[in-house]
């Protein structure tokens, strides 16, 4: 799958400026950038949720998981109804199993679930659409660290199990490095660096990437 010369404009402001990015089959491409870098606009454009120019080739069936699991589930629908939206009622149990949620949760409403559980439900719903590409936009940024770890493990597991291609977007370079095969760095609407994860983090070529890396907080000692 390849994103070619994609641009997104809101009025006179250019949020995404002529971005070309390949997402190899079965790989996770991590997209990092700060607020206003255009990474979320790019994600929404790939999903067809915002008007854009340029093209997204080879991406039939794109599904998305959103940042805020409190806003991305219909509060009046049970877990089963939500998950069945794309896949049909027969698939609910299989999908819940895929995201490691017990089948008992099927009858619950979002307000009865923890943040991590909700995000799993959102992932299950997206998987129900049998996506060729899964777009994950900051899916762990509203979760606690201990819950984030489990969701990241799940994402990596799903990639192994289903051979899923993924566009994984985050502002957190350490998180992106952990899940992605390829890391793309976005700054002011443009891609400034793309490369294998270890290489981008280990030997950053662009000045902005180096600035980002230097700012990542680390434990001393």
């Amino acid at each position: 799958m390849i994103i070619k010369n994609l641009s997104v404009r809101y009025g006179r402001r250019t949020a995404v400026d002529d971005v070309t990015l390949e997402i190899p089959d079965g790989q996770v491409v991590g997209l990092v950038g700060e607020s206003g870098s255009g990474k979320s606009s790019l994600a929404r454009a790939v999903c067809g949720l915002v008007p854009h120019t340029g093209s997204v080739q080879g991406a039939r069936r794109v599904q998305m998981v959103f940042q805020d699991p409190y806003a991305s589930l219909d509060p009046r629908m049970t877990v089963a109804q939500t998950v069945a939206e794309g896949a049909g009622a027969g698939q609910v149990e299989r999908l819940l199993g895929l995201v490691r949620l017990p089948a008992e949760l099927a009858g619950r409403y979002p307000r009865e679930l923890s943040g991590g559980q909700r995000q799993r439900v959102a992932i299950a719903r997206a998987l129900g659409g049998d996506p060729a590409l899964l777009v994950a936009d900051e899916i762990t940024s509203s979760l606690d660290v201990s819950v984030q770890a489990a969701v990241l493990n799940l994402i990596r597991g799903l990639r192994e199990e289903l051979g899923l291609s993924m566009l994984f977007i985050s502002h957190n370079l350490a998180v992106v490095r952990y899940v992605a095969d390829v890391v793309a760095v976005m700054h002011r609407g443009r891609l400034v660096e793309v490369g294998p994860a270890e290489q981008v983090v280990g030997e950053p070529a662009h000045e902005y990437t180096r600035a980002l890396l230097a700012a990542v907080p680390r434990l001393r000692g």
Partner: peptide, 10 residues
């Protein structure tokens, strides 16, 4: 809302 966006994609 995001859940309607998700439904549309599905």
């Amino acid at each position: 809302s995001d859940y309607v966006a998700a439904a549309r994609m599905l």
